[in-house]
Amino acid sequence: MSAASDTKAQTSSRIGTFSLVFGVSFAILYVVCDMGAFPMFTYHPGPDRFDMGFTPPRRDEGPAMYWYGWIANSAVGASALGVLAALLPEKIRIRIPLALAWIAPVVLLPVLIYSLKFYWRWE
């Protein structure tokens, strides 16, 4: 293998590690942000206003939205973890199982269903 293809394989592997760790940690962080109510910001669609962090809805202003803030927090956290993982030595990086890419969402599904237990009521 030439030096050029060696370099390419290494870069490719780092990208692969970043994308894998980003995807898995994004999913986990998103569920944590959802269940722990940790949005980076709160959007109030009524008055079209943003507040930093978690802000409860205000009287006569309609609902508050946290979903965008959860995504932002998860993306920042997952990016940081992805970069850190990509910087790890190759002998450690190759030990991260690729199967986590599909196992993580499958495992998180029952957690998400449980987090929505408020809605699963029979009347």
Partner: peptide
């Protein structure tokens, strides 16, 4: 709500899917 959660998680998995 579950749809919103799952599609968001799917969005985060797109980089590894593409890779």
């Amino acid at each position: 709500e579950l749809k919103e959660h799952l599609t968001t998680i799917g969005l985060g998995l797109l980089p590894v899917y593409w890779y």
